[in-house]
Design a protein around this nucleic acid. Structure first.
Lengths: 231, 231
DNA sequence: GGATGTGAAGTAGTTCACAGCC
DNA sequence: GGCTGTGAACTACTTCACATCC
């Protein structure tokens, strides 16, 4: 009994992780006035085999033109759609410290479709200050209704904060605290953990194996394009 | 012709990505005075099936005791070893903005074995200030010899900075800029991209699929523990 | 001619299920 | 009795290779 019934698209997880990468590349090409790209070029820039690029993109419907490659602006559009950017996501951010600031300042942190609707902290020095066009509110007070939350609080209060978010009917949390969160089934949590990244890098450095060479990705568990049979 | 010859350990990539997670859990247990844990408990906390935990840990040699589970302090030790923490890594950080500060403040950003030996920036306001016990130097000047670099610069100067690092004989870069880096083969790059994380979360939110429920991980491409057959 | 889209083959990783040891 | 370690089965993803269409 694999896969129940009715799945609107159901892309393989690794594909989902690569789509944003293709999108960024395509967007950059559009910005530079380029109109088309083939799977080999995309693959080289993404750090992925051309065949993989083709299969990934074929999953979104036939976006390519045989003989001519992909129209990059179409690519941007269709990937946005596939990732769900046409929907509106109200996002709140908890913990406006250095990391919170860094995220808010990052030009492309907020995806299209995502709308920042609230900033929260518990530090009285921070509450009331204005960041990214919003006034920081007390996390102990009322929360704006939202779909997603970004957690940038210290690890020792992360669980507590998560509990509050779950109570507030938030079902998607992007957690930056290096802390295992316990949430009910039905709540999606995604972890970003800097120290883990560094550790993985250290492993590969020690063993001389792993994600070597250029290309974007190699990121989290994504397989590199096989032995670079470069000239 | 799979796997040449002579590989000191050669763990599967997903295993490498999970080891730091087990380690954090084990360390937390040690802190709480707990001595042993079985694969089921570890798996629940890590968001991974028990069999996977066992296979992962078996790859490090027989650390478990049949009938009694794993000794958590032994676990911490052996995982550190496997990840290469016994080696000394000299780390420099480029770009001491909000993100750089956030990383440096994070208690567990630097893994054991990693030694921060230099901070660099190009902003005159930042150069000369002291952060994390080090004085920020001009990135245009001399660089301390190092093994790894952490890149926290804006995307438009990331490639330029990477070129400098490569020239300086650095072979491992942890890149926080949302920018494709082109580096020679033999240089490991790992990307941390916040916007991609948010996009993946948005996808799962839209499609109702994916990494739901508790547990650490679900992170980058790591498969969740199969349909939660919870009561 | 040239590059996509895709069955078929190959590979990697996960999970089962149980023998083996405490 | 309980839980690890692991061959064997399974599942998922990647890559090949080529028919297909521009």
């Amino acid at each position: 009994m694999p896969v129940p019934f009715s799945r609107p698209s159901m892309l393989p997880e690794p594909t989902v992780a690569r789509l944003p990468v293709y999108q960024r590349i395509a967007r950059e090409m559009v910005r530079r006035g380029r109109e088309r790209a083939d799977s080999e070029t995309l693959g080289r820039l993404a750090g992925v085999a051309p065949a993989t690029v083709r299969r990934d993109l074929a999953g979104l419907g036939s976006l390519g033109t045989r003989g001519a490659g992909y129209d990059v602006s179409l690519l941007v559009e269709r990937i946005e759609e596939a990732l769900g950017h046409h929907q509106r996501y109200d996002v709140i951010l908890i913990g406006v410290g250095n990391l919170g600031h860094a995220l808010l300042n990052s030009t492309n942190f907020l995806i299209s479709g995502a709308q920042l609707v609230g900033l929260y902290d518990v530090n009285p020095d921070v509450i009331g200050t204005e960041v990214a066009g919003l006034t920081v509110q007390d996390f102990a007070g009322e929360l704006a209704p939202a779909t997603m939350a970004v957690l940038c609080v210290p690890p020792d209060v992360a669980q507590e904060a998560a509990d509050r978010l779950v109570e507030h009917d938030i079902h998607a949390i992007l957690n930056f605290a290096p802390q295992v969160l316990s949430v009910p089934i039905g709540t999606a949590v995604r972890y970003v953990d800097f120290s883990i990244e560094l550790q993985i890098l250290a492993y590969h450095l020690t063993n001389g194996t792993g994600p070597l060479g250029g290309g974007l990705l190699h990121s989290l568990g994504i397989t590199p394009p096989a032995p670079p049979r470069t000239a």
